[in-house]
Design a protein around this nucleic acid. Structure first.
Length: 564
RNA sequence: UGGGGUGUAGCCAAGCGGUUAAGGCACAGGGUUUUGAUCCCUGCAUUCCCAGGUUCGAGUCCUGGCACCCCAGCCA
């Protein structure tokens, strides 16, 4: 929705594709794929790739985008991730139709291709140990040397490879390698491993196999088998492209997809490596992969980010080969913009201060009308109960306010939103001098919030009737790290030293508008003057919703205060 | 003197030899406002990592530097 309102931004990948279409390359077709390994939850970085791949397919000549699991390492992968990934991609708003694939679907073909390579003298079985292979590989500046088994005959290799498949060798005993060039300046070309032995149960193929193909070999062939035209991946695979091309060329693949690399997303004040996210979960720094502070899709969803806002964000950040870090303010701007348009307004008090309106009749309640969205009549209105005792936000009152303070103070008049003007007459404190409550008086003529005599009031504050308030738990979240680049290592500190220990604050009893009691999971609201909140989709119970703060409203008063 | 990449504002990013270097975020100022929100104006790179060169004309082409990122898994 928000994407259509933006002019399509150009990026180097789209430019390449436009050219390809113009030149009738691939018969002017566009077919991409999103190829996650099912070994973890998707995060905001994956969202960038998803939006890129599915977005491009969507925008060019009715292109297609496959969802393909790169499941070639049974030890790390799990069915659970396969499910969560599909759910996340769907939630983000993308569809793969009938085109859900698994690299493991191609194991048999991959095996046949490998035999072809052996037949063509392009691959051999090596009995060097892992450690020896590393030694033989050489270093970045020195060429490697050839394995003593490199010269084995086609027949011997074929037989050995069959025996590998048959399970006659132990893990680590031997591997199948491509025969390329041990002195290549590109490490990936120094006889890369194609198959290794893993006597592990695969989440889809069970115990059918004890040899598993490596990424470089599998990925390019999978792409070719699926008729992918543009294979988009991140920068660290740039060095792998010659190998990608080498395999496809040597195997006379049915087609030759073009690999194009782009920079992965880095976001300030967070980490986006699966390893680190895993560590946070494992060490209990967060409550799980779906902790609302996590940059995972499930976490962001629980926090209240909408699919629309995430797509908008991915659209805004662009696609380049620059190694960059995007400021979280861009992300926050995307949700604020989306939610500002769509979130119904409600009132809620997070840090209550009791206010007694002395001249309001005791025991009386009246219904006041409040629009659900000030700039969108279509969203309707609701009735608010008003009575003699209300709660306001503690920080909306100051006993001794600075000059520019527009809120309530002794002798000052403010407007209660959609209700009345009130003046603070008296401050009640307990014996130790703590503020307990305020005694105010209201002006009955200002019902609805306007004075017939035309007098103006500088501040409008939110409120909730004490007797009618719905008490609920509210969780305030803040950024997980204090440092913009926690993993940059530049202070010789561990990335975890930058964890923001105040990133989660629980308010057990906030006072909310009663209508909120029936709020459904993931329903979102703007708590006026506070921020955007959504119903926690995990810990809420029927009639007992818990509210997560997605993001606060911009607050120029807070900013001003901080500067002083 | 290993290879592969990248350098346009505080953060992203368009720009494909030819008007005054798009746009977003952030920031600053002003207006509207029953949210100190939203919205609306205005400002924000005499200059594109640096130095030379080609050209009537260079962010765009050439040469030489500099800085940063990635690669030595039987991970992806």
């Amino acid at each position: 929705m928000s994407e259509n309102s933006n002019p399509e931004s150009s990026n180097f990948i789209r430019n390449i594709i436009k050219d390809d279409i113009k030149n009738k390359k691939n018969k002017s077709l566009v077919h991409t794929r999103f190829p996650p390994e099912p070994n973890g939850y998707l995060h905001i970085g994956h969202a960038k790739s998803i939006c890129l791949n599915f977005g491009i397919a969507n925008d060019f000549n009715d292109g297609l985008c496959n969802l393909r699991f790169d499941d070639t390492n049974p030890i790390k992968e799990d069915l659970e991730f396969t499910k969560s990934i599909q759910q996340d991609v769907k939630w983000l708003g993308f569809e793969w139709g009938e085109r859900l694939f698994y690299a493991s679907d191609y194991f048999e073909q991959l095996f046949e291709f490998a035999k072809q390579m052996i037949n063509d003298g392009k691959a051999y079985v090596d009995h060097l140990s892992a450690e020896e292979i590393r030694e033989y590989r050489g270093t970045l500046t020195e060429p490697g040397k050839e394995s003593p088994h490199r010269g084995r005959s086609v027949e011997e290799n074929l037989s050995l490879f069959d025996r590998m498949r048959a399970g006659e060798f132990e893990e680590g005993e031997c591997v199948l390698r491509g025969k390329i060039d041990m002195s290549s300046p590109n490490m990936n070309m120094r006889d890369p491993t194609i198959y290794r032995i893993k006597k592990a149960t695969h989440h889809r193929t069970g115990n059918d196999w004890c040899i598993y193909p490596m990424y470089d070999y599998t990925h390019c062939i999978s792409d070719a088998l699926e008729g992918i035209t543009h294979s988009l991946c991140t920068l660290e695979f740039e060095d792998h492209r010659p190998l990608y091309d080498w395999f496809l060329e040597k195997l006379s693949a049915p087609c030759h997809p073009q690999q194009i690399e782009f920079a992965r997303l880095n976001l300030n004040y967070t980490v986006t490596s699966k390893r680190k996210l895993n560590e946070l979960v494992k060490d209990g720094d967060v409550s799980g992969w779906d902790d609302p502070r996590m940059p995972t899709i499930v976490g962001m969803r629980r926090r209240g980010y909408t699919p629309e806002s995430i797509r908008d964000f991915c659209h805004r950040i662009g696609v380049t080969k620059n190694d960059t870090a995007i400021d979280v303010s861009v992300l926050e701007n995307s949700v604020r913009e989306d939610l500002d348009n769509r979130a119904p307004r409600v009132m809620g008090i997070l840090d209550p201060l009791k206010v007694v309106i002395n001249n309001y009749p005791e025991g009386e309640t009246e219904q006041l009308e409040a629009p659900n969205h000030p700039n969108d009549k279509e969203m309707g209105a609701r009735k608010l109960s008003f009575s003699r005792i209300i709660y306001i936000e503690k920080n909306d009152f100051m006993e001794d306010p600075p000059k520019k303070f527009f809120r309530l103070a002794p002798g000052k008049e403010v407007r209660l939103r959609y209700a009345y003007f009130i003046i603070c007459n008296e401050i009640i404190k307990d014996s130790s001098g703590n503020l307990v409550e305020l005694h105010c008086s209201y002006d009955p003529d200002t019902k609805g919030g306007n004075a017939p005599d035309g007098r103006k009031v500088k501040g409008t504050i939110h409120w909730v009737s004490a007797e009618h308030a719905f008490k609920a738990e509210v969780r305030l979240y803040d950024r997980l790290f204090n440092d913009p680049k926690p993993d940059s290592n530049r202070h010789q500190k561990d990335w975890k030293d930058f964890l923001n220990r105040e990133s989660k604050k629980i308010i057990k009893e906030a006072y909310l508008e009663p209508s909120l009691q029936s709020a459904k999971n993931e329903e979102f609201f703007q708590f006026e003057r506070l921020g955007y909140f959504c119903v926690d989709n995990k810990d809420s119970e029927k009639g007992k919703p818990i509210f997560n703060r997605t993001v606060s409203l911009r607050d120029s008063w807070l900013k001003q205060k901080k500067e002083n």
